[in-house]
Write a protein that binds this DNA or RNA. Sequence first.
DNA 1: GGAGTATATGCGTGTAAAGGTATATAAAGG
DNA 2: CCTTTATATACCTTTACACGCATATACTCC
Lengths: 126, 126
Amino acid sequence: MESAFEIIAEPNRRAILSLLVSSQQSVGEIEHQLRMPQPTVSKHLRVLRDAGFVESTVDAQRRLYRLKPEPFQEVDAWLAQFRRFWSAHVDALERHLDRMDHQQYGSSTPTKRKTKEKTTRPKPRT
Amino acid sequence: MESAFEIIAEPNRRAILSLLVSSQQSVGEIEHQLRMPQPTVSKHLRVLRDAGFVESTVDAQRRLYRLKPEPFQEVDAWLAQFRRFWSAHVDALERHLDRMDHQQYGSSTPTKRKTKEKTTRPKPRT
DNA sequence: GGAGTATATGCGTGTAAAGGTATATAAAGG
DNA sequence: CCTTTATATACCTTTACACGCATATACTCC
């Protein structure tokens, strides 16, 4: 788990980060809004904090978590090299994004996928 | 491996993608430049193609791979919600202050612009 | 057709990460 | 104190993925 990219590969962690955009949140608030078990939330927050995506402050028994910008900038910096390339294809973006759902905990088919395909062409996404 | 984020979590795949920014490449060229075994390259390319990051054309026995923009845009779209946040913490603020300095006719404003932030100050990038 | 080249895929293996459950720590309130 | 609330962590199990190696496919040229 060394790079920022591996951190945001996990859908639940991305959901947590998106939640924190609006404002800082306690573990319980995240747990309730995302409907995931508290230990799961705590563990993901630990990973996020170790990677510098969030920081926390103590409020009585609560911990309030909020975003930190650095790792996002790291991802953005990598992405930058491709930006000039994709700007010519903006139209295709909308078609692609239309097929994306907003994933929530438990709805993302977390495991179990045996592939038995012999395609040579790009595979249609779900 | 359903999301674009999981695809780019793998360092070798990111390296391949970065290679393809300059121009399309054959499997052998990628293999040589990145010094990884040919099956590894082929397998990563398969993953990248299934996810829509690259496409290939046939040139005799060779396959030429090049980038496709959509998944990058998907990542960028997710990142966008945080961009507001982090630019508020660094870029926009500094640029704003710079502009104020430069706009001032006969500006005598001091250059030391240390601003107060309510949260931890972003560190300079490593 | 056979040899050589270029790429893809199948199989077995190790490893690490994610989830579940239980429990530990810590603070607040009676 | 003892209980309740809030969060963290430990342990265990499952699984997926990345790799190495071997082999299959496919094209070219003799």
